[in-house]
Simulated scan of single mutants.
Amino acid sequence: MKEANSYIINIAAFLLVGVLLVHILTNAQLILLPLAWALFIALFILPMTQWLEKKKVPRSAAIISVLVIVTAMIGLVLYILSFQIVGLLKDAPAVTNKLNEWILSLQEIAEKAFGITNETIARQVSNSLSGIINNSLGVLQNSLFSAFQTITLITVIPLYIYFMLYYRDLFYDGFLGLVKNYRTKTSDIISKVNNVVQQYMVGLMGVTVIIGILFYITLSLLGINYALFFAVLLAVFNLVPYIGVIIASLAVILYTIATTDSLFYPIAVLASLWFIQLVENNLITPYILGSQVRLNPMAALIAIFVGGSIWGISGMILFIPLLGVLKVVFDEFDELKPLALLLGSYKTQKRMKGQESSEK
Rank of each mutant, 00 (worst) to 15 (best):
L137I: 02
F215A: 06
Y7Q: 13
G203S: 09
N27S: 05
Y172N: 02
K347I: 10
T150G: 06
F14A: 11
S82Q: 13
N100R: 13
G312C: 10
F171H: 05
I211M: 00
Q149K: 09
K112A: 04
V193A: 00
K327I: 02
N282T: 14
A94Q: 15
L339T: 03
N194W: 01
Y200L: 05
E359R: 11
G290R: 14
A303Y: 10
S82F: 13
N296F: 00
V125C: 06
I211G: 05
L159S: 15
S60V: 07
N27M: 09
V17C: 03
G87A: 00
Y287T: 14
L106R: 09
L46H: 07
F171V: 00
L33P: 09
I243Y: 07
S220Y: 06
W51T: 10
N134D: 14
V95E: 02
I11W: 09
V232M: 10
G174I: 02
F114Q: 13
F175I: 05
Q349I: 14
L144D: 08
S6Q: 12
D91F: 06
L52V: 01
I109Y: 11
E119W: 04
S128E: 02
L342H: 04
S136M: 03
F333V: 08
L89C: 11
Q199R: 12
T120H: 10
L78H: 01
M201W: 05
N281P: 05
Y172A: 00
L219K: 10
V279E: 02
I257R: 07
L221E: 07
F148A: 15
I109W: 15
L278K: 01
V68W: 06
A303D: 08
L15Y: 08
G307H: 03
P286A: 08
K56M: 08
M164H: 03
G223S: 09
I80F: 13
G324R: 00
A113R: 15
V202S: 07
S105E: 07
S82V: 06
W102E: 11
K112E: 10
F171T: 02
L33H: 04
A110N: 11
I317Y: 12
L295K: 03
W274F: 13
S105Q: 06
R351E: 13
Q349M: 07
S291V: 10
F163I: 13
I257M: 08
L221F: 14
N134S: 15
M73P: 06
A94K: 11
L78W: 04
F145G: 05
A13E: 03
N97Q: 15
K98T: 15
E101S: 12
F14W: 04
N100C: 03
G18D: 00
A299R: 06
L250R: 05
T120R: 15
I257K: 10
K353H: 04
F44H: 11
I253S: 00
I253G: 09
T71V: 12
V17F: 01
A231D: 04
N296R: 00
